[in-house]
């Protein structure tokens, strides 16, 4: 199952875990499974209309899904998704490279 990495400020809404294994074949499906498992995450990730909040960035492995196929981006069983707080609403080329450098921790 794809693993979703949770940023520190949201871990209290995910049972204190830093990652959650979720089912799904697209970003939308995986995040839907995540918020079904941890209902408290939903309002922090999505607005009232159900769209991903503009200051939340989701990366498949180390690529921003905004530059892939957004919510429809395919997710394989060995992929990871990372929910990265966007400090100022922008997205930057490869902030997750630092995770790769550190062995994905």
């Amino acid at each position: 199952m794809p693993k979703v990495f949770i940023p520190t400020p949201l871990r209290s809404y995910a049972g204190g875990q830093d990652s959650v294994d979720c089912a799904g074949a697209t970003v939308a499906e995986v995040l839907a499974d995540l918020t079904a498992r941890h209902k408290g995450l939903e309002k922090h990730l999505f607005d009232e209309a159900g769209a991903m909040r503009s200051f939340v960035n989701v990366y498949r492995n180390d690529e921003d899904v905004r530059y892939l196929e957004k919510e429809k981006t395919p997710v394989g069983a060995s992929d990871t998704l990372s929910i990265v707080p966007s400090i100022a609403g922008g997205s930057h080329r490869d902030p997750l490279a630092v995770l790769t450098d550190r062995g994905g921790s």
Binding site: P7, P9, D18, V84, V98, L99
Partner: peptide, 9 residues
């Protein structure tokens, strides 16, 4: 550079 998941903490 430190983990983007962990912010300034």
């Amino acid at each position: 550079l430190t983990s983007p998941l962990e912010g300034t903490d």
